[in-house]
């Protein structure tokens, strides 16, 4: 079995990449995708821990897997709403570059 640390490092890297993207990319669509990456890194964790717990505990621990399913569904819904919002922003601002959307401040 792959040592748990490897998984953790992997998911953390993925998470960090996603976070980095959210913080730096100017295109809102890319930001959206980066959020998905972050969510997915968490999903990886869940699945990974689920299987490790199954080893440690007696029997199978499915809750991590179930959780992942839930979170995928939620992520999908989020993306849908997100895209709709970006559409509406594009209509008003003619851009979806996040640093240009800043009339609300102070």
């Amino acid at each position: 079995m792959i040592p748990i640390e490897y998984w953790l490092v992997f998911s953390s890297l993925l998470f960090s990449i996603g976070a980095y993207g959210v913080l730096t990319r100017r295109n809102a669509i890319v930001v959206l995708m980066c959020i998905e990456i972050m969510l997915n890194s968490a999903n990886i964790n869940l699945v990974m821990f689920s299987s490790y717990h199954s080893v440690l505990h007696v029997g199978v621990d499915p809750s991590g897997q179930v959780f992942t399913l839930f979170s995928i569904a939620i992520a999908a819904a989020e993306v849908a709403v997100g895209l709709a919002i970006l559409l509406s922003v594009y209509r008003r601002y003619q851009t979806i570059e996040v640093d240009k959307i800043n009339i609300l401040r102070w």
């Binding site: 959210v22 913080l23 730096t24 930001v31 996040v98 640093d99 959307i101 800043n102 009339i103 609300l104 401040r105 102070w106």
Partner: peptide, 11 residues
């Protein structure tokens, strides 16, 4: 002033 309006700063 920290409330710059830039959402990425917030994040």
């Amino acid at each position: 002033r920290a409330q710059s309006g830039n959402v990425q700063r917030y994040a």
